[in-house]
Design a protein around this nucleic acid. Structure first.
Lengths: 209, 209, 209, 209
DNA sequence: ACATACGGGACAGCCCGTTACT
DNA sequence: AGTAACGGGCTGTCCCGTATGT
């Protein structure tokens, strides 16, 4: 999965602009960015408010609690990001190997262009929140499952075309996601893209690339 | 790496027990446990104090700041745990495959015996603290490096004995650590040992087991 | 005085119902109920809105501020309740003793039928708001005065008929109101009707009943 | 019961004075004063901190929550005040009538000397908190019960000496407390000592004074 | 070495009220 | 008349760290 950062709407200069969706999106974007970089608990709502350019009253109107905001980030930013980055490209790629290679190329290009390795937005939240609340855990587990399913599905399609007969789809998918997540964690700790690139190469090697 | 939990010295009932090392160890054990489960920022010093059965004054006598405590946990608990769990077993195992298999068996047994999947203590802290402070990052990166080195070293020894000629030691080590960390993260999110076990089996399969 | 609770108009399900009086009454009923039970400051406008089944905008359309709502509750709910419960029955009763006895019977029946002793609506607001604002104080004092006047007037009428010559009307009225208010306060604290009933019996005993 | 105000220790000028009891007492005094005047919910912890001359950290050390502070005020200020004002004087007075008269004289003198009628500290809290939490209610009910018991006990002693044979101790005590509480409430609303004085005179009249 | 009291500030959440809009 | 979005500021609570005392 790539970064959660997107070109977010700027906070308008006017005093009062009834634009609920715009405001809500600005908050979600800012929250996703901060949660990925610093983690959930290290991101103060106060700073979030400043970064998103909204007032605390407006934020509370859309997200009654920080937990609600966290869940919304998972549901409306992190989850969709997996779809965009993995599910769709893999579904349209001519083969699993080419699809995975394309995803990794995209991820690596983004990583090289960034000034910092901020880690995988899902994994960052997963480790911090999975045991904090069952609602978080369910959401996170669902996203991981969808991610694995995208890979497994692509492998099954490949196998229907006679490729990779010896691989177990679910097992391969699990390993690939784990290698990505773990490789990104090491890259964050090393502040170097090398570990992730190494993992990517190994996964591609399993597909004979 | 296994869990950071160990049979910690019980807090004595007496009011004032001049036992600096015991107290220090109780604090480190409690901190390692809570950091692994809930993360660093979600663990309040006040709760640590309660869990360790010490007073806040005593804690601050041994660890002047929460950051110092975090570094001490990495240096005196998480780092040594990698040595115990990976470096030593791999160094004495007859082959890499057997060594890795033994480590995974041990880890899986611990996991099956626990009531909860709490994740990898290193990975949990890595994602939360790597970007918070360079000192943290250096410590975490060092532990990851030692972990990879243990695996790479064992593979090199294997290759000297004529096995696994086609594997790149550093690349394999990186993938193995990533698969373990990522698999454990998914297991934490799923609260099921399955994802980690799948990753373990895949890594062992690469070694022809 | 009895309870402020009355069969209030149900909130209609429709989205937009131009029914200014109905809406206003629903708000006043809900506010009177909550103020009596929890007090003024413990009743958040947000909760009032929920209990009355209106929107915050609608509430503020009818009552520009919470203070205005408080005054309206005093003027349009608490004050009239004293009239209904005390002034009118006493004015039409054949004698003071019979009038007071009838009022107390009514009050006790309502109390026995309720699931909770919520206290005297006037006294509850009096202690919380008398010193908060002169407007409140004036309103509250006026209601107390009207209440005492109803009793004093009835005693004077009785004396004109040759009864209770030895009683001072104003003093008796003050004691009766105080006994009722204080007895209800104790009943609220005890969540038992006993203290109020005891006070009622004592007051009636003074009238030779 | 008189006022809850007492000559409280002044906040010392020094930076750090390990005087836990002094600090605790300053907070309790300030809280009792503010609760009596403005009520519980209208008294912000921030203002309390300012009035007591303590820091919010220190306050939180002694009273972890506002509720804990409220309970402590009831237990350590309001309750003892009933003992001081009623129980002890009545126990040592030569007769109930003289005891009650003395208490009322004292109360009236204090009231005349004050710039404001702030109400009965117990009643003020009773109406606001009785239904807010069972712990509050139990505490408040207990204080009311002790107050009534003091009066009933004194009447029983009087009856042993042959006086007031016709009065029911528990009923008289209830009426007296109710008359005091209700009279004080009216005095607060009227900002005049008259209602309370009238009630006091009536109660004394029942004792033949 | 250890315990308790305390400092100051930041935290998430909620308050009441208003403004833009239908 | 009535709705929903929004503004600021305040609430109670809790934070981590230090100073004082034993």
């Amino acid at each position: 999965m790539r970064s959660v950062d997107r070109t977010s709407t700027q906070a308008p200069r006017g005093r009062r602009t009834n634009d609920p969706d715009g405001l809500r999106n600005r908050v979600l974007d800012a929250a996703a960015r901060m949660f990925q970089r610093q983690g959930f608990h290290a991101s103060a709502v106060h700073d979030l408010v400043a970064e998103a350019g909204v007032t605390s009253g407006a934020l509370h109107h859309h997200f009654p609690s920080k937990k609600a905001l966290g869940l919304a980030v998972l549901r409306e930013r992190v989850g969709p990001l997996v779809l965009e980055t993995w599910t769709e490209p893999l579904a349209t790629a001519p083969s699993l190997a080419e699809g995975v290679a394309a995803v990794f190329r995209l991820v690596e290009r983004e990583l090289d262009g960034a000034d910092q390795v901020r880690g995988c937005p899902l994994n960052n939240l997963a480790l911090e929140l999975s045991l904090a609340d069952p609602e978080y855990r369910a959401e996170i587990d669902g996203i991981f499952a969808a991610w694995r399913a995208a890979l497994a599905q692509a492998l099954i399609a490949d196998q229907a075309a006679g490729r990779h007969a010896g691989l177990d789809p679910e097992a391969f998918a699990t390993l690939a996601v784990a290698a990505y997540s773990g490789g990104m964690a090491m890259s964050k700790a090393a502040q170097s893209t090398a570990p992730l690139k190494t993992c990517a190469a190994q996964i591609l090697a399993m597909l004979g690339a």
